[in-house]
Write a protein that binds this DNA or RNA. Structure first.
Length: 179
DNA sequence: AGATTGATCCAT
DNA sequence: TGGATCAATCTG
């Protein structure tokens, strides 16, 4: 099967637009045994330097500088010393924004619900930090023709960011309805 | 509700 | 250099 990674232009757009467009796309992982993929069913947007829920809101550090970088690259970090979270950088260079992929549906139909479990399942770790998703190697996102009507997308506040006060209320978690 | 676990960040 | 924090998950 031909590899058709989404182009950089897909990611160089307003983060909420990219987030919406990511739902129904496929996250593909290349392993020794072949290709494994999951249909993206839930994401969260982290947008701009003001967003207190975003790691980038405390400025550019060694860890977070990737969020200020080129769209279409990954931001993978370790959380609670145990779990990895997989994010995709969006928008223009210099503007910190990314999308956390929270849940996918495997080819088997199994729902992998939660960013830590998702990374464990697809064997994604910090080794994949700053990986370029537009190359179609090891890890990428592809379009398999699914188009979601707006009414199929449910918006809700982001998980686990209560410390962000006002920003925690923003409905920047997007999920395919019925999952 | 509590424990887990270690990288990161910043101030003591 | 020490300690608080954390975009999560599991167990009870």
């Amino acid at each position: 099967m031909k590899r058709r990674p989404l182009a950089r232009s897909f990611y160089e757009k307003p983060t909420l637009t990219v987030a919406r467009n990511l739902l129904g796309k496929y996250l593909v992982r290349e392993r020794a045994g072949g290709l494994f993929s999951g249909r993206i069913v839930e994401v969260e947007a982290y947008v701009g330097p003001e967003d207190r829920a975003s790691h980038a809101s405390r400025g550019k550090t060694k860890r977070t500088e990737i969020m200020f970088g080129q769209a279409g690259l990954t931001y993978v970090y370790l959380i609670y010393g145990m779990y990895h979270c997989f994010n995709i950088v969006t928008e223009r260079e210099g503007y910190p924004a990314a999308i956390l992929v929270r849940a996918v549906e495997l080819e088997s139909g199994e729902l992998v619900d939660g960013p830590g479990k998702l990374c464990r399942q697809l064997d994604i770790s910090r080794a994949h930090n700053r990986h370029d998703l537009t190359l179609g190697k090891q890890l990428w996102v592809e379009d398999r023709g699914e188009r979601l009507a707006p009414r199929m997308i449910v918006r809700a506040p982001r998980i686990g960011v209560e410390y962000a006060k006002e920003w925690a209320k923003k409905p920047w978690r997007l999920r395919i309805k019925g999952l």
